[in-house]
Design a protein around this nucleic acid. Structure first.
Length: 482
RNA sequence: GGGCCGUUAGCUCAGUAGGCAGAGCACCUGGUUUUUAACCCGGUGGCCGCAGGUUCGAAUCCUGCACGGCCCA
């Protein structure tokens, strides 16, 4: 972190003082703009010779004695300014010496095209809107240092256009998802982030204390059990986009605080959810890029075609040479070890199966694929498979080896649901809970329901070709600097 | 938790037989009335991540720590 004494700071403070001496307010209140930077370029034909008012941050500057060129940047892009002593007058021109790269300016001027063809504003009048006291990162290379890009994200998006692009796309993607679901009659809701009992996934929660209720609480690890209560209540198509929190690992694909969309549709099953995913991904690609193809990590992925279906058990059976469903827990551990996959003693069968699949198969699934029909014990909230009671009706959408979601035909038999919760708790599975209130809700009756969760961060990674989840999260947590 | 890599000026980076700490950009002085990574002259700027150790001498070698990245668990 730069110190107060660092280069440029003192000099800029002096300029600030001089400006005040000259009666200039270095921090303005407002500025009426007629155009944004990009609009001046875009509408050049109509604007040429006309007066415009634009504002932005001073990003470049080339001085030539009695004239100078500069660029200001606003959120649409940049526009060049041309500043002449004979146009501005001696004092306002001289006062330009008190400006620095990084300052915010508002200008009034005439639009023209320079000899080299760049659309430019010939400035008639300028005002300082905010003085910058810190030197900006280098104009050509931008801000490269990964740690600095995360810790000072404002600098990253200020000077690295690609970073800005990612976050603008993130916003568009979320907007498009809403548009897609709203058009299909889904209702967006908000459910509690602070929950008295966590559930809907197997993950270590963050804990906190709710003073006025004098009660331990958890930050949600999933929205599932609340959204399904709403299905019970008669909201037939419902979704929520929000943060979930899992007090666990942090790597390229995982961030403890992440954004998920969960949606539930009454009278539907997991096949309907597969169709929805196929449509949604095609829609996103078309809206964002005008084609069904995207590029991720150097590969072209086409969402025009239906996704592959890969049965969880059959894929594992082929890879392991034996049917994992027919193996005892201890045999399964041995077979896993034979494939180089070691787990801590006491790891649940569900976790082991999951790990086997992730390590041996999932990372090779490049083409869009639904991994379907998982073993029952992996998924206590999914409905038994209609053709094979050892399995559940579940799928995980996988693209480029990356799991981007999870979906089921939702379990709506309250007796079986309670049994499945109790089994998981009895097997002492990590983070298994029994949500009595949810069981009560199910006892009132829940229609057949298809449910789907999608990791928004990973979705954004996929659609913006980013390698790390931290590159699609504006302010990823880092350790405190000491 | 383990392995590897990184940390040098505001930014981007050089810097090994261990011997005065470097460049470009930015900044400051001067010049320049159509430039655009403007240009020309001159200049300022360093806890070389932190703490120890080895050595006549350490950015450089060794140990530990901090922060970050990648890979593994």
């Amino acid at each position: 972190m730069p110190s107060p004494q660092s280069a440029g700071f003192e000099v800029r403070l002096e300029k600030l003082a001089k400006l005040r001496e000259q009666g200039i307010m270095p921090y303005g209140y407002r500025f009426e703009r007629t155009h944004r930077a990009a609009e001046v370029q875009e509408w050049f034909t109509e604007l040429t010779g006309k007066e415009v008012r634009v504002a932005g941050r001073l990003m470049t500057r080339r001085r030539h004695g009695k004239t100078q060129f500069a660029h200001i940047q606003d959120d649409s892009g940049r526009v060049q300014l041309y500043l002449r002593q004979d146009t501005l007058g001696p004092e306002p021109y001289e006062r330009l010496e008190l400006l620095d790269i990084g300052d915010f300016l508002g200008v009034r001027g005439e639009v023209f095209k320079t000899r080299t063809g760049e659309v430019t504003v010939n400035v008639l009048e300028w005002v300082l809107l905010a003085k910058s006291l810190r030197p900006l990162p280098e104009k050509f290379h931008g801000l490269r240092d990964v740690e600095a890009r995360y810790r000072q994200r404002y600098l990253d998006i200020m000077v690295n256009p690609d970073s800005r692009r990612v976050f603008l796309l993130r916003s568009r993607i979320i907007g498009l998802i809403r548009r897609f679901l709203d058009a299909r009659g889904f209702i967006e809701v908000e459910t509690p982030v602070l929950q008295p009992i966590y559930g809907g996934a197997a993950a270590r929660p963050f804990q906190t204390f709710y003073n006025v209720l004098e009660q331990e609480m958890f930050l949600r690890i999933s929205d599932e059990l609340y959204l399904k209560r709403l299905i019970v209540g008669g909201i037939e198509r419902v979704y929520e986009i929000g943060k979930d929190f899992r007090n666990e690992g942090l790597d390229r694909f995982h961030n403890p605080e992440f954004t998920q969309i969960e949606l539930y549709q009454a009278y539907a099953d997991y096949s309907d959810m597969m169709a929805l995913v196929e449509e949604l991904f095609r829609f996103l690609a078309l809206e964002l890029y005008g084609t069904t193809e995207i590029e991720f990590a150097g590969r072209r992925i086409d969402f025009a075609k239906p996704w592959h279906r890969l049965r969880f058990i059959e894929a594992l059976k082929e890879r392991l040479g034996v049917d994992p469903l027919e193996l005892s827990d201890s045999m399964l551990v041995k077979v896993a070890a034979g494939k180089g996959i070691e787990v801590q003693p006491g790891t649940s069968r569900a976790k082991l199966l999951d790990k086997l699949f992730s390590d041996l198969i999932q990372e090779k699934l490049i083409e869009p694929t639904f991994v379907i029909d998982h073993p029952k014990e992996t998924t206590p909230l999914a409905k038994p498979h209609r053709l094979d009671p050892r399995l559940v009706e579940r799928f995980e959408p996988v693209v480029c080896g990356m799991e981007v979601g999870n979906a089921f035909s939702e379990l709506n038999d309250p007796i079986e649901q309670r049994q499945r919760f109790e089994d998981a708790v009895r097997r002492n599975e990590e983070f298994a809970t029994l949500d009595e209130d949810y069981c009560l809700a199910l006892e009132y009756g829940m229609p057949p329901t298809g449910g789907l969760g999608l990791g928004i961060d990973r979705l954004v990674m996929l659609f913006t070709d980013q390698n790390s989840i931290r590159d699609v999260i504006l302010f990823p947590q880092l350790k405190k600097e000491k």
